[in-house]
Structure formats: structure tokens, C-alpha cells
Design a protein around this nucleic acid. Structure first.
Length: 802
RNA sequence: GCAGAUGUGGCGGAAUGGCAGACGCGCUAGCUUCAGGUGCUAGUGUUCGCAAGGACGUGGGGGUUCAAGUCCCCCCAUCUGCACCA
């Protein structure tokens, strides 16, 4: 037997698989399908990170096993290639982003291929390919036509360095998620997508899918549904000021009101406000603050009382003052609140600063000391007809009262906001709309798609924050598709999330130039059976793509309401020091070097063996050697293989058990324990010998984890015909996974004292008798009386003595 | 502050309420070797003991149970989201 030459072996089999198209999803739609999906990467200039293969290998193992089990498996890969880093690199180095992208993709692809991942490369896609983004633009047009895309002047997050609008999700701790520069508020006209219209369905339909629980929880929290009431307060001006509250039960305790600095009522009352100057000054100050400052400076409440206008509490006709304060956000609810300092911490703080009355309406705390917010135990007081009720009862009754009087009603609110869809950037999908003086915004006819990106001189955004496309007069100036008059194109582009919101559909039929995907392909492959990706995408990509898919379902394109039947999430791979891998920390592990030193099979095996798949795990450059050693042992075992086409009695049970365990563990994404079981099997083979049938089973079970070495050994065994990766998955028999006798523990008063061997499923009496006959047990119970015996069949005997 | 998760040997980690520490790393001793490495054999939670054997052990404190890493209550620590959302 030669030495284990992993480099030669891995190159050879990767070539063979490619030549044979071994992993191409079959067009045979009579076979049962299995669609496994991993998040396609952003092909960054840094190349592959060791974190990428953790996800890819995990589902590769599932995909390979499913293939061996006879499923028609679709396991595709592509590139989410629009985005800022590429554009920034292009600006700096004066290279076209498309050239940079192409280069990065080539590198990523070769790195992925070196790992022996069983992707169907014939279905490779890139979001930057006009043949692809034609359909991204098409979906946008459908959204526009259904009124789900609209333009709005709004305060947006503005990155001072990227000179670009960011979605709320891209702002982290007040700085830009990508570049780390400060983010300020700026008013701009933006394209928006009405994801809020789908808020309830995005919550409800989580019941239909098999996502890990924390993903569901995080999505629900992000959407942030709350049930409360809208209440109209009449003002001294005779108009209405409407508030949203989740605590209508505390209405009798409302001692003042607060409106957000941006609230339009300020303009409406301009004539009446005796301190308009102070109010406007406050508003301006609030506008200047970035979101970060506004939340960071939340220790001390600030505000200005409106002098000249007040409001009437509808339940007791009391006059109460109105304040303007930046602790009330225009973007949530109605931008105005009723303040109940006794039962809301923020209102309490504000009331303390401005010395406002605090009226207790729910008994149970000391409201002069702190706001009492417990809704479980309280009883209503000082609340007229609500007195004596519980909080829950009071809520119901007050809403009935308000509804009857016509001054309020129940209302559901969501924290989720509409999706800011414009970017003032070059490297994104152009938005296929034209502005005509006469007709307004007009969609491009579908037969003019794709609207491709023009060549530009420079990719830098303009100083005013417009996209570099704005400088391309020839491109911008066009005619109105509707009336033929001169018109100009939208120069903003789409955010990176656009292309990734539907890419999983395109894989089903990636070369179709007539439709997004053929109906036949959609019906056969939908939905994605198993989608694995990072937790960081839970509230962004995962929510956005569910939204788009629901929309596509509504317009009759997608056949299912939900895109992904199952979602799992992997933990990060950390540096050796337990910190996140990063260049600045100097703890980055380069996958190329690992593959060069140990081989792809070792790399795959190690990343799967590293620990609980869902948890973060630190890289260990010594532990990986154990995985390499294991593969060497499998390799060297070849020389010990004895003839024999059936399992020997000494290994039969172990083999059946291992087949069961490995199969079940793969389905549960517990690859670490599956590998441990295979290691135990190899240890047993070294100890007691192995025959050809047994060795073949080992190779089959190990193949999804370490495909190259197992293919080679399979070939060396002289197996002819199909390659190992297309062999049927081994079967086990339940009856052969159990031995005829079992070793069970004997406890005395719950403490283990001995072990005994008993026939499988033996009678209780026999178990007790055997236990009592045991010498160690006798010593332990000497001089005492057995008062109770507990026998759990095949597990344990516990003797309670006194 | 809110939400979620986590806490087990020197390390990564295993354990449907039923023999804690599988599997691997590391370490120790021995064999192989000119030597380094590889490979092989044995050992390896702590502690008392020459040994047989015993005691103690899953962040801390209570509880339920014949039996708790696992279930319940309280506390501590760490991580990850979100953060004035009325």
C-alpha cells in the first residue's frame, strides 16, 4: 500500500466528478427531490474564510447522503456579487467593479472546488449577471405595479464615508456596518418597499415552517407586534391628537402628552404657540443629532412644553399639557403619546425632570419612587368605572368604552418599518423606472429589461450624494415609455439584499431567458427543503426573502407561501485565541494553507468534528491533526482487510448500530458525533480485524464526510462500475442493533455500587436477584434492609435500603 | 434595560431523568527509531490509600425524585441580538 497522497487523490477525484457530472441535479422529475441550500457568498477580495466551509460542508454531507439514498438532489452555488467593498476597491484602484468581481469569483470558485463540495456547478449564478438581474428588476416592477414600491421623502441613515443611504439594519451602534464611519440623519427621496404590509403574515406563517426556535423568536421580536389602542385627545384648538398606547387601561393616569419633534401638529398650531421659537430650536437640535446620539443621550430626558395649546383627556375631561420631546419617535405609532408617569419608566423620568403629577391607577407599587409596570398583579384605582378591575379586564373595558364613544379603538402596531430600497451607488441593479414631467414615475416596459449598467468614468458617488450614474447624461436622458416626451432615468440602484431575495428560485431553472423560472421547475423543486446560514441574516436576508417570496406567491409565480421548509444556523469559527477571526487581530486561518498541509478531507472532517454545529468554536491547529490521523488509520486499515462478503459476528451489531447512528446524526446535523462513531468503528476494526464487507460499509458511511479518500480506497478495493459517491447508502436492521445481553448499573440509595450483565429484556425479579447476589452490592447493603427496589428494564437497578 | 443562548476534565466537546466525561486533542510511561518525527501499547476528573476500596465532582444556592448535567425556583458570570417601539 502506498502512502496517503492526499493531493494527488483529491485532484483526481475532483476531476472525475466534474467529468462525469456526478452531482448535476437530474432533470428526471419522477424521482423524489431534495433541495439543499446554503447562503451564497459575497466574493470578497480576501478570499474564502474558514467559516464558509462549515456551513457548506455540513449541507454537503446531507446532500451526499441524500443522493446515496436515491433522492434527486439539488445543491447549488452562486455569487451575491453586488456590493460596496467591490465598489470601494474599484474606486481606489480604478478598475471596473465587474473586473474585480470576476476575479474574486474565480478565486472563490477554485477554493470551493478544492474542498470537494458536491455543488451542481452547471447551475452557477451571479447576481451581477444581466441575465440574472433582469429578473431582479422584473420583480421590482411587479412590486411597483402592485403599489408595494413607493417613493418617499424621509429621514434616512446617511453614512458619511460611503456617502450612501443605509437601511436601519445596516446601522450598528450608530456607525456604518460596513465601513465603521459615523451615520447621521439626512432627508432624501427614497424608494421604499412595503414589507410592513406583510408583517402579520411573516409572523403567522412561521407556524408552517421548521426553523430552529431562536430564528423564529428573533424574527418575531424584530417584527415586534403589539396590541394596544389608538386614542383621540381633543385639543384646545378643537382638533384631534391621536396617540397609540399598549396601556389604554392607564388612561386615567395620563397627566400630560408628548409629541415627537417632527410631529406635523407643530406646524398646525404655529399661530397659537407662544414659544414657537423654543419649540423650533428644540426640533432643529433633535434633527442634528444622529440616531446614535439620540439614543446614546438617553440618560436625561429633555423637551419643551407647548405654550398655548393643551389637550383634554377623553375619560375625565381633565386638561393636560403637551410637550415635545425626542424620546418619542415619529416613526412608530402616531408620533404622539399619552404619558402615564406612574406606570411607564420613560414617562416617570420625564415627569421627574419637569415636575409633573404622577397619579397611581394600578395598585401594587410606590409610584413616587419608581414606575410600577407589572401588569400581572395590579388592581385598578383612581380610574372611575375601571376601579377594582385587573389590568387585563380594564384594557378590554376601556377599549369598549372608547369605541362606543367614537374616540378610540383597538390597534395593532409593528416595530418593523418599510424597507429603504435605494442606494446612491454604482455597483447595484439599476432601478428600471423613468421620471417624466407629465406622467410621473413610469416603469420601463418588461421587454426592455434588463436595464444594464452603463460604463462610467468614475465610480465615486457625487458630493451631493447622488449615484455616479447621475453623471451619465446620455444614459440618464431618455424618453417616457408612456408618452414619448423627454424623461430621465432613476439613477439610484438597488441594495445588495435585492439579488439575494430570490436567488434560490433561479437555481431551479438558471438559464431560462423567457421567465424567472419555469412553472414546471418551480412546482417540482419548491420549496427549499433545507436552508442553512448564519444567524446574522435572520432579520435581514431571511425576512426580506420571505417577503419577496410571499409577494411572488400572491401574484401566482411561486407555488408555495413560504420559500424554505427548514432553516438551521451554524456557529462561527473563532481564532485560536477564542476571539472572532480578523486581520487586525492577526488570528486568521487561511483555508488554502490548511488544504495544502492536511488535505480537503481532513479540513472537512475537522470542521465538522470541531464541536456543536450551532455554537461558536475556536480553531485548534493541534486538534486538526487528530482528524488527519484518523484518515491515515482508515487508509492503513486497507492492508488489513480480510476476504469476506458478509459481516462477521464480532462486528455485526456494531456495524448496524453505526449505520443507524451516522444516518440519524447527519439528519440532525450532529456531524461531530457521527464522526466519533466512525472513529470508534475504526478502533474496533484495528482491535479485532476487518473484512471486505465491513470495510466497504465504513467507506460508504465515511464518504459524505471525506469523499476523496473513500473514493480512492473504493477503487483500490477493485470495485468496478459506479463511483462510490453514487452507491446506495448502507441499510441497518433494527433487530441487529441490540445485543442479547446488556450491562446495567446497580445503585444502592441512588449511588452506583456495581454493574451486572443481564439478558436483554429480562424479568424484574431476575434483575433484582442478580443484583442482590453481586458481591459489591452485598457489601453495600450489609446490615441494612432493602425497603424498595426500582428496576428500569435494560437500564438500572436501584435498591433503597435503610 | 429587554429578548435569546451558554456555563461539564488541562483543551474541543459527549450524555431519550437511569453507570458523567463517548470521540478527539494534549500530557505521562513504555516499545519501535542512530536521532527527530511517525507508528504502536498502557495510563490520564479531583482527592485519600501501597492496594483493595472510599469520598467528592457538570457556575453558586435551594427544591422535586428511588435516581438530576438534564426538571422547577432564586442568584452569579459570559456571549449574541435589539435598544426611548409608548
Amino acid at each position: 500500500m502506498n502512502r496517503y497522497d492526499y493531493k494527488e487523490i483529491e485532484a483526481k477525484w475532483q476531476k472525475t466528478w466534474e467529468e462525469r457530472g456526478a452531482f448535476h441535479a437530474s432533470e428526471d422529475h419522477t424521482k423524489e427531490k431534495f433541495y439543499a441550500l446554503v447562503e451564497f457568498p459575497y466574493p470578497s477580495g480576501a478570499g474564502l474564510h474558514v467559516g464558509h466551509p462549515r456551513s457548506y460542508t455540513a449541507l454537503d454531507i446531507v446532500a451526499r447522503k441524500k443522493r446515496m439514498q436515491g433522492y434527486n438532489v439539488l445543491y447549488p452555488m452562486g455569487w451575491d456579487a453586488f456590493g460596496l467593498p467591490t465598489e470601494n476597491f474599484a474606486i481606489k484602484n480604478h478598475i471596473h467593479p465587474a473586473v474585480v468581481t470576476e476575479r474574486n469569483i474565480a478565486r472563490f470558485k477554485s477554493q470551493l472546488q478544492a474542498l470537494g463540495l458536491s455543488f451542481d456547478w452547471s447551475r452557477e449564478i451571479s447576481t451581477t449577471d444581466p441575465r440574472y438581474y433582469k429578473w431582479t428588476q422584473w420583480i421590482f416592477l411587479q412590486l411597483y405595479k402592485k403599489g408595494l414600491a413607493y417613493k418617499k421623502e424621509m429621514a434616512v441613515n446617511w453614512c458619511t464615508s460611503c456617502k450612501c443611504v443605509l437601511a436601519n439594519e445596516e446601522v450598528v451602534q450608530g456607525v456604518c456596518e460596513r465601513c465603521g464611519a459615523e451615520v447621521v440623519r439626512k432627508t432624501k427621496s427614497q424608494w421604499m418597499l412595503k414589507i410592513t404590509e406583510y408583517a402579520q403574515r411573516l409572523i403567522d406563517d412561521l407556524d408552517q415552517v421548521d426553523y430552529i426556535e431562536r430564528v423564529k423568536t428573533q424574527q418575531k421580536n424584530w417584527i415586534g407586534r403589539s396590541t394596544g389602542a389608538e386614542v383621540d385627545f381633543t385639543t384646545s384648538e378643537g382638533d384631534k391628537l391621536t396617540v397609540y398606547t399598549t396601556r389604554p387601561d392607564t388612561l386615567f393616569g395620563a397627566t400630560y402628552m408628548v409629541i415627537s419633534p417632527e410631529h406635523p401638529a407643530i406646524e398646525a398650531w404655529a399661530d397659537k404657540l407662544r414659544n414657537m421659537e423654543a419649540v423650533l430650536a428644540y426640533r432643529e437640535e433633535a434633527a442634528r443629532k444622529s440616531d446614535f446620539e439620540r439614543t446614546e443621550l438617553n440618560k436625561e430626558k429633555t423637551g419643551v412644553r407647548l405654550d398655548g395649546v393643551c389637550a383634554i383627556n377623553p375619560v375625565n375631561d381633565t386638561e393636560i399639557p403637551i410637550f415635545v420631546s425626542d424620546y418619542v419617535l415619529m416613526s412608530y405609532g402616531t408620533g404622539a403619546i399619552m404619558a402615564v408617569p406612574a406606570h411607564d419608566e420613560r414617562d416617570w423620568e420625564f415627569a421627574k425632570v419637569f415636575d409633573l403629577p404622577i397619579i397611581e391607577v394600578v395598585k401594587g407599587g410606590n409610584v413616587q419612587e419608581a414606575a410600577f409596570t407589572n401588569v400581572e398583579t395590579g388592581e385598578m384605582v383612581n380610574s372611575g368605572f375601571l376601579n377594582g378591575l385587573s389590568v387585563a379586564e380594564a384594557k378590554k373595558k376601556i377599549v369598549e368604552f372608547l369605541t362606543e364613544k367614537g374616540v378610540g379603538h383597538q390597534k395593532v402596531n409593528y416595530k418593523l418599518r418599510d424597507w429603504v430600497f435605494s442606494r446612491q451607488r454604482y455597483w447595484g441593479e439599476p432601478i428600471p423606472l423613468v421620471y417624466c414631467e407629465k406622467c410621473g414615475w413610469t416603469p420601463l416596459p418588461e421587454d426592455q429589461l434588463p436595464l444594464t449598467l452603463p460604463e462610467v468614468e468614475s465610480y465615486e458617488p457625487t458630493e451631493t450624494g447622488e449615484s455616479p450614474l447621475a453623471k451619465m447624461t446620455d444614459w440618464v436622458q431618455t424618453v417616457c415609455p408612456h408618452c414619448g416626451a423627454p424623461a430621465r432615468r432613476e439613477t439610484d440602484t438597488m441594495p445588495q439584499w435585492a439579488g439575494s431575495s430570490w436567488y434560490f428560485l433561479r437555481y431551479m431553472d438558471p438559464h431560462n431567458d423567457k421567465e424567472l423560472v419555469s412553472r414546471e421547475a418551480l412546482e417540482y423543486w419548491s420549496p427549499v427543503d433545507w436552508y442553512n446560514g448564519g444567524m446574522e441574516h435572520t432579520t435581514l436576508h431571511l425576512l426580506y426573502s420571505r417577503f419577496w417570496h410571499k409577494f411572488l406567491y400572491d401574484i401566482g409565480v411561486a407555488p408555495t407561501p413560504e420559500p424554505y421548509a427548514k432553516r438551521t444556523s451554524h456557529g462561527m469559527i473563532l481564532g485560536e485565541n477564542g476571539e472572532k477571526m480578523s486581520k487586525s487581530r492577526g488570528n486568521v486561518v487561511n483555508p488554502d494553507e490548511i488544504i495544502d498541509t492536511y488535505g480537503a478531507d481532513t479540513m472537512r472532517l475537522y470542521e465538522m468534528f470541531i464541536g456543536d454545529f450551532e455554537k461558536a468554536a475556536p480553531w485548534s491547529s493541534t486538534s486538526i491533526k487528530g482528524c488527519r490521523r484518523f484518515l491515515e488509520r482508515v487508509w492503513n486499515l486497507f492492508d488489513h482487510v480480510q476476504p469476506g462478503e458478509a459481516y462477521t459476528a464480532q462486528h455485526e451489531i456494531l456495524l448496524h448500530r453505526t449505520i443507524q447512528k451516522v444516518g440519524e446524526d447527519i439528519e440532525a446535523l450532529k456531524h461531530n458525533t457521527a464522526i466519533a462513531a466512525l472513529m470508534s468503528l475504526v478502533n474496533a476494526f484495528y482491535e479485532k480485524g476487518v473484512n471486505r464487507a465491513e470495510y466497504k460499509t465504513l467507506l460508504l458511511l465515511l464518504n459524505p464526510f471525506a469523499p476523496h479518500i473513500t473514493e480512492e480506497l473504493w477503487a483500490l478495493l477493485g470495485e468496478t462500475g459506479e463511483i462510490l459517491s453514487l452507491q446506495p447508502w448502507p441499510q441497518y436492521e433494527e433487530s441487529k442493533t441490540v445485543e442479547s445481553t446488556v450491562e446495567i448499573g446497580v445503585q444502592v440509595n441512588g449511588k452506583l455500587r456495581s454493574t451486572i450483565r443481564l439478558p436483554l429484556d429480562c424479568e424484574q425479579q431476575q434483575a433484582v436477584d442478580t443484583a442482590l447476589a453481586d458481591e459489591k452490592v452485598q457489601n453495600a447493603i450489609a446490615g441494612k434492609q432493602v425497603v424498595k427496589t426500582i428496576v428500569v428494564r435494560n437500564k438500572i437497578v436501584n435498591l433503597v435500603v435503610k
